[in-house]
């Protein structure tokens, strides 16, 4: 069966199934199990209304439980077993992994990524948001800087492969170097240590637009009186920005920063497409993919390390959400 037909059938079955499930389950609940008739009419309506939320929630909870909650436990358990999964080795995968140089490099590089990418994206995003705030063509400028958000990490990697290309007739970096008098092309992706930053630039290029959009909205939300008051008191534009505006949107800056941090811990595409993890550019997600399909014990152990790193943000998010609901 051709995949298109299969896809169409899936859409019909999936959508039809969902609608049918919700419709029929409500029907059964109202007409068969707790009919609002007879002696228990009132009680039945109440009972039906107690059950109904769970009817609405069931498919979502089932999918969430299966694809996101179960794997946390499943991965942890799997990481305690050896490569083939038949022998319990406790934390063996973790101890061999931590002792391995490849993992340490990946961990260190990931640390660099987590420091640099959110900082650079947030800073540039804030800069663009502020600069375009009162510009007549600000919306066009923002739209163009936002554009890389739509491009896949693989597509972006390819775009930047052109920029970094060795041949000075293809790569603009080497073209500039030659114009400035260099005679040997330089492969920036093989430049030990610094190559990590050339890879990070790609993610910064993508994520700046995200930071910009959110911070721009936050800047718009600042009460104008505060800015006006500062100007009347003689503040110059820089003081207005750093002392009046930035403190007021600090909360949003933190949210943007953490969102990008979480993303950094998930992106393996850029390293995979650009260097394949060679030249000491491995990060945890790409390190994990090296072991995927080969050593599931090790792969799940890496995934669980990523989970542990994300955990504080998760707890912080939940606390914030709860605070807000009260």
């Amino acid at each position: 069966m051709s995949p298109i037909v299969q896809g169409l059938i899936t859409i019909i079955v999936g959508v039809g199934g969902c609608v049918g499930y919700f419709f029929l389950s409500n029907l059964v609940l109202d007409k068969v199990i707790f009919p609002p008739r007879g002696d228990d009419a009132g009680r039945n309506i109440n009972r039906a209304n107690m059950v109904r939320p769970w009817l609405f929630l069931f498919p979502a909870l089932f999918a969430l439980g299966l694809y996101l909650v179960y794997p946390v436990i499943g991965s942890f358990v799997r990481s305690l077993y050896n490569r083939s999964g038949d022998e319990f080795i406790g934390f063996g995968n973790y101890t061999t992994m931590f002792a391995e140089e490849g993992f340490q490099t990946a961990f260190f590089n990931n640390f660099l990524w987590v420091i640099f990418v959110p900082a650079a994206s947030t800073f540039l995003g804030l800069l663009v948001a502020q600069l375009t705030d009162r510009l007549s063509w600000g919306n066009i400028a923002k739209s163009l800087i936002f554009m890389p958000m739509a491009i896949s990490f693989v597509g972006a990697s390819l775009i930047w492969k052109f920029v970094y290309a060795n041949d000075p007739d293809v790569g603009i970096i080497n073209a500039i170097r030659f114009a400035l008098g260099a005679t040997q092309p330089l492969d920036v992706l093989q430049l030990s240590f610094w190559n990590n930053f050339f890879l990070m630039v790609i993610l910064v290029w993508i994520q700046t637009g995200f930071a910009m959009v959110i911070l721009s909205a936050a800047l718009r939300g600042i009460p104008e009186e505060t800015v006006e008051a500062a100007i009347i008191d003689g503040a110059n534009p820089f003081q207005v920005f750093f002392k009046i505006k930035v403190p007021q949107i600090m909360g949003t800056i933190v949210v943007v920063w953490t969102t990008i941090t979480i993303l950094v811990l998930k992106v393996f595409d850029i390293v995979y497409a650009m260097t394949g993890g060679n030249f000491d550019t491995e990060i945890l997600p790409s390190y994990m993919m090296d072991y995927m399909f080969r050593d599931d014990g090790r792969a799940t152990a890496v995934a669980f390390v990523i989970m542990i790193i994300v955990l504080p943000v998760m707890i912080w998010n939940i606390q914030n959400a709860r605070k807000e609901m009260r």
């Binding site: 969430l64 299966l66 694809y67 996101l68 909650v69 179960y70 794997p71 946390v72 499943g74 991965s75 799997r78 979480i262 811990l265 998930k266 997600p285 994990m288 995927m292 599931d296 792969a299 799940t300 890496v302 995934a303 669980f304 990523i306 989970m307 994300v310 943000v313 998760m314 707890i315 998010n317 939940i318 959400a321």
Partner: peptide
Amino acid sequence: VVGLLVVPLQLALVPM
């Protein structure tokens, strides 16, 4: 739901 927003999907690959 808020907590699950940040669960790295790497975790799901092997078990699923």
